[in-house]
Design a protein around this nucleic acid. Structure first.
Lengths: 239, 239
DNA sequence: TGTACATCAGTGAACGCGCGTTCACTGATGTAC
DNA sequence: TGTACATCAGTGAACGCGCGTTCACTGATGTAC
């Protein structure tokens, strides 16, 4: 046991440093904005030489990737928990809970929102970071599950546009059919539409486009989400 | 007449150079992305010294301001024309026409979309550019007018959340009441919600978040817009 | 317990880069008599 | 028509800046006998 304790000590220190780098990077993003993530800035704040960071992240974009994955994963988890915070017998409550988490997250930390859903960093190109893709996948799954619960009442209210499985990407369609064999492609399209609907007002707000018009964006968002539930044929949340 | 012709010649040349600067800036935005607008890059391409640009724009941000105003104004005009491309007796057609213009514009030139609705440029802070604010105002007015035409059928379908004029900014509320005295604050909130609804899927698409899921984002968008019309109590467009 | 060696976190200095902005200037274009 | 002057577009060089990244190195931490 004692033989590998020292080894573990180094590992632990390394993990701590990694966490510290990320923490400082996040603080900078929150304070300076997403446009000013820089290794040199982080190095300065952590009290390290810029070069030293390269034993932790191969490149600046790798760090950004990791940050995006972190943020997106945390969001997906919160969305999952939000959905489960209401009983399955209260589908409207579930929709509203997820919506609230989505907006609260974005408004509490707009720069994190920008990191995930905006331009990220000047030179940065996404590089198909696997963890970020997985987080997005989980978030989508939440919308899909919400639809599954609402489908009994929502199905009859869909616009008259036929959807085929081929309209979705094959991976996405395959998994949807595996998890919810009872759902038609229209339902999956609906899930994406719900996502878009939550996203729209939040994106406008984060980028400052609602400020000149509305005093209470939260109320606007809630109105929109109640309208959404209505359109799904759900009665109001069981509050 | 001949006395000020030479004066005019210089003015004309100056105006041409101004236009050329902007044109090149736009080309760079479209090709290199919104993150790489730089005076030096423009100077290089136009065949000028960087310093020379300072007799045309006081600062880099002034140029960005002007570009945003240009783009946003063009969008607003297209939206206005789209609305008027259908008769007032076809409110659904008008909504769909505006929606189509909004998405087509964004997809044809994603970088212009980013310029207006995204992070713009790294160091850039908006500086409350008047022309851009006016363009946004015009775009909002289009949504407001769409609602005015749909309100007879839409009013009874609003979610049960009371809106007061005080929930809107005073300028915005004042003008809305002047132009459409018959509309309640709920209608104005609805206009903003419609904007958000068009914006959501488009923003997700532009930033690459629909690619992994859906093969035909255009169809998804159209489905959503038909659902929107349905929710407004409008019958299908008179096609 | 003590010594010889291996690992590895972090240093310090340098590389080349592109950026926004300023400023004294040149030389062509236009103006006034 | 011709000359002296004013305007003004654009030059060229420099300023200071911060960035990502590389690399030979030091010195502490851990390992093996």
């Amino acid at each position: 046991v004692t033989t590998d304790a020292p080894q573990r000590r180094r590992d632990r220190l390394r993990a701590e440093t990694l966490a510290e780098i990320r923490a400082i990077a996040f603080r900078q993003v929150r304070q300076e904005g997403v446009g000013s993530i820089s290794l040199r800035g982080i190095a300065r704040e952590i009290g390290m030489t810029p070069g030293a960071l390269y034993s932790y992240y191969d490149t600046r974009d790798a760090l950004v990737d990791a940050m995006i994955a972190d943020v997106y994963t945390a969001l997906a988890e919160r969305m999952e928990r939000a959905r489960e915070s209401r009983p399955a017998t209260d589908p409207a409550g579930r929709v509203l809970a997820v919506a609230k988490v989505y907006r609260d997250w974005a408004i509490a930390d707009p720069e994190e929102f920008r990191l995930v859903y905006g331009d990220a960093v000047p030179g940065y190109r996404s590089s198909d970071s696997r963890p970020a893709a997985e987080a997005e996948h989980r978030a989508c799954a939440v919308f899909r599950d919400l639809v599954a619960e609402s489908w009994p009442s929502a199905s009859s209210r869909q616009p008259p546009i036929g959807w085929r499985w081929a309209d979705l990407t094959s991976d996405f369609a395959r998994e949807a059919r595996a998890v919810h064999p009872e759902l038609p492609p229209e339902a999956i399209a609906l899930a994406l539409r719900i996502w878009g609907r939550m996203h729209g007002l939040v994106a406008l707000e984060v980028y400052g486009h609602l400020v000149p018009q509305v005093r209470s964006p939260a109320k606007l968002f809630r109105t929109e989400m109640l309208d959404l539930c209505q359109g799904l044929g759900l009665s109001g949340p069981a509050d």
